[in-house]
Design a protein around this nucleic acid. Sequence first.
DNA 1: GTGAAAGCGCTAACAT
DNA 2: ATGTTAGCGCTTTCAC
Lengths: 367, 367
Amino acid sequence: MGTRGRGRSTGGSRRVTITTVAKAAEVSVATVSRVVRNHPDVKDTTRERVMQAIEELGFRPSPLARALVSGHSATLGLIVRDMASPFYPELAKVVEHEAGRQGLTVLICGTADDPEVSGNCVRRMLDQRIGAIIHASVGLDEEELVAEVGDQAPVVFVNRRPRMRDASFVVVDNRLGARRLTEHLLAQGHRRIGFIGGPAWASNAAERRAGFLDAMRDLGPGCESLVSDGDFRLDSGRARAHSLLSRDGRRPTALIGVDDLVAIGAMEAALERGLGVPEDVAIAGFDDTQFASSRLIGLTSVAPHIDQMGRAAVRTAMRLSQQGRRRPIREVIEPSLVVRRSSAAAGRRISAAAGRRSSAAPGRASG
Amino acid sequence: MGTRGRGRSTGGSRRVTITTVAKAAEVSVATVSRVVRNHPDVKDTTRERVMQAIEELGFRPSPLARALVSGHSATLGLIVRDMASPFYPELAKVVEHEAGRQGLTVLICGTADDPEVSGNCVRRMLDQRIGAIIHASVGLDEEELVAEVGDQAPVVFVNRRPRMRDASFVVVDNRLGARRLTEHLLAQGHRRIGFIGGPAWASNAAERRAGFLDAMRDLGPGCESLVSDGDFRLDSGRARAHSLLSRDGRRPTALIGVDDLVAIGAMEAALERGLGVPEDVAIAGFDDTQFASSRLIGLTSVAPHIDQMGRAAVRTAMRLSQQGRRRPIREVIEPSLVVRRSSAAAGRRISAAAGRRSSAAPGRASG
DNA sequence: GTGAAAGCGCTAACAT
DNA sequence: ATGTTAGCGCTTTCAC
């Protein structure tokens, strides 16, 4: 603290390398290296001496040199679709925080689900001998991705269930989430429900949609399901909602957005048409993002527990990169339903604690 | 395309290094290196030959080795306060995108304005021989930061004007923004205006506050200014707003939040007190984030032009790291005021094009 | 348990 | 205009 150097480093203080430490501790660089890496084959007294030298000199090993020689660095690559879409920054925050706690650095990259951007991104990461890739985008065909990566780094898919065998992933049970949400809406008396979906290639969108349709079939005999696919953007949600809500006489009384942003687009559309939410049309989304939880919006949403997902992703990535990734690690998180004003018929079915993370998944969940 | 390798790399294909290329092109590694770095001292025919070898072999230089020997890498470090606060992901998106276009990798890190986290973060980045640091957090005392970094990498402060001389930065003119906003509110007939500020150590918060107070003094003689400082979180905004709005008889008719999140907290508070926005109390914020621009919220906000800021930040970072950063580069962006429903007295003072980025800064701006 | 030596893949003098 | 050589700071056999 308070080095008070005048900008230029203070004359003599050359950079502290492993060699410096070796000399100070009167051992070879190999031994210092062992100590730093916690290799067992070091006598306790030696270890002590080296540790002290490290401490005194303020030695910090160069991740660069380390990565160059060992072939992989303590760096995580996080690939997202769009940092500006509310789900991703929340995920990024958790991942970065968790990674930081483990001393890992996080490289970030936003593809716009453009395979080319995505490819560049992955290549740049591999060139850095990245330790593991956390892939939370949905675009690039995963075959290509995995082929490109080969065995250069383990890949963890997040929020997306890859089609291929032996891939590792951390996802939320989207079908279950959709089912619970649908169940909730049916219980509210809705008989005509619209689903505003995502692009065909997005597996999580497909799962949510399928979950909705299955639930309608199983639980809402005689009810009508309307599906309209768009992409993940707000404007798409709005446009699709407008079109669904314009069916005179037969318009849906409830709308589900494939994610919160789309649902918010739908809310905007309702507003623009002079429809009250939830009186005229109930609306719900997926992801339980900050946006949804604001009382100004009060959007009912399926919570994938982003923090849990993020932490699991980092843990998985670390395990894979350590254990030589013998076999895939898969994790499925149970979603919960957070009911808010946008779908609360009586205006007060919101669970007592209106706080953000309150889970309201009831016991009556289907089997 | 379509390498179709069976996972394991296809037997013989060893890694392609600069030496491989040198052999193939029948030149020395130095020449290949020159070609790769666009060094002028290479005969055109030679260059051609090398380029072709590079192409054919699919050679990609190792950023690791490069950084190790040259002392700095093509990597940008982005330090933010909180990825989950709407301003930052929008900035991160632009920075990452712009960096990607230049072939730069982005390392990200969220401090919670905790100097310790921030310090670790900076050290990790320096250990990676980062090319430049874009610092968009506000917490760590910049003296410490700059001392720690020394001349190891150039630093660009973004969205924060450092107190020290010869620091580079890209900021928005917060005082001007605050003045324009205040002017707008006064023009709407407000005579008692509250300002919900940020923490004392945040320079941008201080500037916004000062701009507000100055404008009130200059333009609103006899008007009352109420200031209540909090932090940058939504809950802080809500709490502060509640307290300001509870002054019976003398409550403000307009509230400014130090950023959009705080302003939204204030909107929630108004809602909770049964006050209409903007009829009973007008509300406005800073940053013009996505959140603000949704019609569901329609928050009047001062736009710092995040995209412009982000691009300028990357440009500045690159310039500094190339030109040996002789002298600081400073850039001040002119904000514009985006008027939305939350402060539109008649309910229709919203500029015709209700789109997100429509700037509504009028000519009558103060000198 | 410890050390010596050979690189990892490149750049940067210095020769030529 | 091109080649040679010495590292960057570390890990990793392989001896001892």
